[in-house]
Write a protein that binds this DNA or RNA. Structure first.
Ligand SMILES: NC(=O)c1ccc[n+]([C@@H]2O[C@H](COP(=O)([O-])OP(=O)(O)OC[C@H]3O[C@@H](n4cnc5c(N)ncnc54)[C@H](O)[C@@H]3O)[C@@H](O)[C@H]2O)c1
Ligand SMILES: NC(=O)c1ccc[n+]([C@@H]2O[C@H](COP(=O)([O-])OP(=O)(O)OC[C@H]3O[C@@H](n4cnc5c(N)ncnc54)[C@H](O)[C@@H]3O)[C@@H](O)[C@H]2O)c1
Lengths: 217, 217
DNA sequence: GCGACTTTGTTCCTGCGTTCACAAGCGGCT
DNA sequence: AGCCGCTTGTGAACGCAGGAACAAAGTCGC
């Protein structure tokens, strides 16, 4: 395990959480942290946390723990957010507005390189210093600013079309908020966030809890 | 596998996706669908889909496929959304406004029973026919409307406090949009949606792609 | 300088989830 | 009525992720 080699998918997701916790600790002036303490703060098992960190190479000090600043830097590098990464956002409706104004982008390693919408009435609008552009400008912005990630917040019907345009422009990772399954080339990664799916998973567990109670009654 | 028994966690998440696809098909007048076709539309392997559906009992017809309407009903029941389920939303800021006005809640089996915010300036505001209430009203609404799910869209600093109040009021499932780890009793389920984590996972893969290219060059 | 204590990094094992492959079942055609 | 072809449901194999337990390693106190 010399260098960040073959990091499991599940570990990557947790590294992002550790990074957030570490940033908070760093701001709070904490210098070192043990696997136990960090695991607690991140809501995971300490053994799992140590195994996760071991993929980045031996970076802790036995008997002491980890240097917060060093660990934070190491995870940032592994996740590719040590430099700000450019993102474009397409579909500046209700959700898009919230996302465009969200400070968490910048503080967590991303930079909004452009806002895009197909509606001419929205084009030109200013959101927190960023101007909404028409779809025609997308190709140029993606190329000029080396944008690698696109966020889709359009209605589901438009999602595939927007996705195709993003891919054609050179984007190779997509975060999709629209409830639609996207078809993309092999070299493009897609992640989806579906509010209703999350709620339905919770609903399923509620269902089970209720069934359990019924038996008890 | 007589009745919906011991459905794996991973399957539950996919059932929600199948349900969405089936609803679209239903609206489109499609009567039957094969595992192959449904799997394609949902973006999964057909064998996985059949195994997922098998947890609901044998419901397909060999040589034909599944009846769209029957399957939709069956999954709805399993997920506990055959009747609308009540939800409360706390933190009506940028994100909260978008969520409050989101039509996908209702169409996918949920009903917003209340909007809550601690800011007196926001209380009383009307969003799509729903009035924003103060935190003091929460207990009463949760009890009266049998609310089982709470959605948190407050700043991270307030998330744990809001969570505690929701749990105290009787909510047993929480969807958390704030970047914070929530501590809850064993009987309460928590799911989180963290935009930055999703982006960082995509960023990680971008990092890998770039590394691969560097070697090739 | 040495011993005891603390904490990491890793190994092993267990369990879950995914995939392949195929037998069983059903409809339709002759 | 019987056969053929299509599709489901499931059994078995495989690979990945999680958890416990421990040996190595470094620090702190004396
Ligand atoms: N609002 C929410 O809280 C919420 C929550 C979860 C998911 N979603 C999903 O996010 C998406 C957006 O939701 P919303 O509430 O912001 O919808 P919205 O209708 O308010 O906004 C959609 C925006 O996309 C733009 N658009 C439409 N077609 C386009 C195209 N082809 N190219 C570029 N832009 C186009 C529209 O002009 C509009 O500004 C939807 O798919 C919705 O299901 C929304
Ligand atoms: N805006 C986004 O696109 C976005 C995206 C991802 C995550 N988030 C997260 O969602 C949360 C909300 O984001 P936002 O942009 O809407 O922030 P915001 O500041 O606009 O809204 C927060 C709201 O919560 C209310 N609030 C504060 N303390 C409260 C308390 N103790 N009880 C009840 N209400 C309280 C505030 O009055 C305000 O209305 C944040 O944690 C943010 O990190 C936002």
């Amino acid at each position: 395990m010399s260098e960040g080699r073959a990091v499991p998918e599940a570990t990557v997701a947790r590294l992002a959480v550790y990074l957030r916790v570490l940033s908070t600790m760093c701001d709070g002036g904490v210098l070192t942290v043990s696997s136990e303490a960090l695991a607690n703060a991140a809501g995971v098992n300490s053994a799992k946390l140590r195994k996760d960190l071991s993929y980045l190479g031996s970076i802790g000090t036995r008997g002491v723990g980890y240097l917060v600043e060093v660990l934070r830097e190491r995870i940032s590098t592994c996740l590719g957010v040590s430099e700000h990464r450019a993102v474009v956002l397409v579909g500046i409706g209700n959700l898009g507005h919230a996302l465009a104004g969200y400070g968490g982008f910048r503080s967590r390693g991303f930079r909004i390189a452009g806002l895009f919408d197909a509606d001419p009435n929205r084009v030109g609008e200013d959101i927190c210093g960023l101007r909404v552009r028409g779809m025609a400008d997308m190709q140029a912005v993606v190329t000029r600013e080396s944008v690698s990630i696109g966020v889709i917040a359009t209605p589901a019907e438009a999602a595939q079309e927007v996705c195709d345009r993003l891919v054609a422009a050179g984007v190779t990772s997509i975060l999709n908020f629209a409830p639609a399954v996207l078809v993309v080339p092999d070299n493009v990664d897609v992640r989806k966030v579906d509010l209703a799916v999350e709620l339905q998973i919770l609903s399923f567990h509620e269902q089970r809890k209720a069934a359990g109670l019924t038996v008890v009654l």
